[in-house]
Design a protein around this nucleic acid. Structure first.
Length: 193
DNA sequence: CAAGAGATCATCT
DNA sequence: GATGATCTCTTGA
């Protein structure tokens, strides 16, 4: 069953945790891709110095200020896209970064796009994931309650969760050490293995 | 195996 | 003009 908008309207930390064990579905003319989410990070509002919205409302962060249940996709380091799911109330800028999935379906296509045959390296990181799933800025603002990109609940109970500090946010002062990164305990498919 | 650098460009100052 | 919610490859022990 496809997750409804109300799922994304919960607190960002709850959404980040509840996403673990859910399935990311990407419909594409070349074929569909599905992955089981094993790693997420929460970025919570204007106070969170690691959150892009802490720098204010701009053209880039606009989507985060909008209603929950939309994709926030941005381009970084000159070559990578990052996939986020907008959470919480309209006008409150928050999102969950989807950092890694366990490939479930469409592996051949992922291997092609990634130019890598290692199952574990197909989507074990936010940049790799977007490459494997052909996610780029054309999906920025996409409605997760529509057809091309959404999350599916297959009835799997939420797995055992490990929480730790977020990656790559050393500049975020007191926010850099907050344990807002969540991974499925024991998964082979998380980043920074 | 760990550490470091280079790639490469949209966004904001 | 600087920098970043990363990845890959090279280097050296």
């Amino acid at each position: 069953m496809k997750l409804p908008r109300s799922f994304y309207e919960q607190s960002t930390v709850d959404v980040a945790k509840l996403l673990l064990g859910k399935f990311l579905v990407r419909k594409h003319p070349d074929g569909d891709s599905v992955g089981r989410i094993v790693e997420t990070e929460a970025y919570i509002g204007p106070q969170d110095l690691a959150c892009h919205a802490a720098k204010g409302r701009t053209k880039r962060t606009e989507v985060m200020f909008g209603p929950a249940g939309h994709a926030y996709v941005y381009f970084i380091y000159g070559m990578y896209n990052m996939l986020n799911l907008v959470t919480e109330a309209n006008e409150f800028p928050a999102a969950v970064l989807v950092r890694a999935v366990e490939p479930v379906k469409g592996m051949e296509l992922m291997k092609q796009r990634r130019r890598n045959d290692e199952q574990r390296d197909l989507a074990s990181g936010p940049g790799k994931l977007c490459q494997a799933f052909a996610i780029d800025r054309s999906l920025n603002g996409a409605d997760l309650c529509a057809k091309e990109l959404y999350i599916e609940d297959c009835g799997e109970p939420t797995p055992k969760i490990l929480s730790m500090a977020r990656i790559g946010v050393d500049y975020a002062g007191k926010w850099k050490d907050k344990r807002l990164r969540f991974v499925v305990r024991g998964s082979e498919f998380v980043s920074k293995r």
